[in-house]
């Protein structure tokens, strides 16, 4: 029984990690790519860690997996946020589908003054 649940969670996790990688290839710009990869890979990795916890029970390995799960949910969005902010500061515009009305950012973003000599 435990084996079956373990395999189910593991396959869900691997499917979502695969989808995240596919999204990385299919999306048009850096922000959409970050969205796809962050969401899918976070759930996928979380699912794999949960499967490890179920398989090994409350042993040393299982508890480490649980702690990893908590820190993954805290860290993964933060890292993605840092990447998005870096991309924004270096001046990458949001992609628009050709033909759509333009949706501007709500404020002109502050740009970082770089020293140019």
């Amino acid at each position: 029984m435990i084996d079956i649940i373990f395999y189910i969670f593991m396959s869900i996790g691997l499917c979502f990690i695969f989808l995240g990688c596919l999204g990385l290839l299919r999306m048009p710009d850096v922000y959409c790519r970050l969205q796809a990869s962050t969401k899918c890979v976070t759930l996928g990795t979380g699912s794999v860690l949960l499967a490890t916890l179920i398989k090994t029970g409350f042993s040393a390995i299982g508890m480490k997996a649980l702690v990893c799960l908590v820190f993954l949910f805290l860290n993964s969005p933060t890292a993605a946020h840092a990447l998005a902010k870096a991309a924004d500061i270096s001046g990458i515009k949001v992609w628009e589908k050709p033909g759509d009305e333009k949706i501007y950012p709500a404020k002109p973003r502050p740009t970082v003054e770089t020293d140019k000599e």
Partner: peptide, 18 residues
Amino acid sequence: MAYRILSPGPPIKPGVVK
């Protein structure tokens, strides 16, 4: 997100809101 990734010509219309 899985639906958006798998459908042809991703059905997206990205923008920034505050």
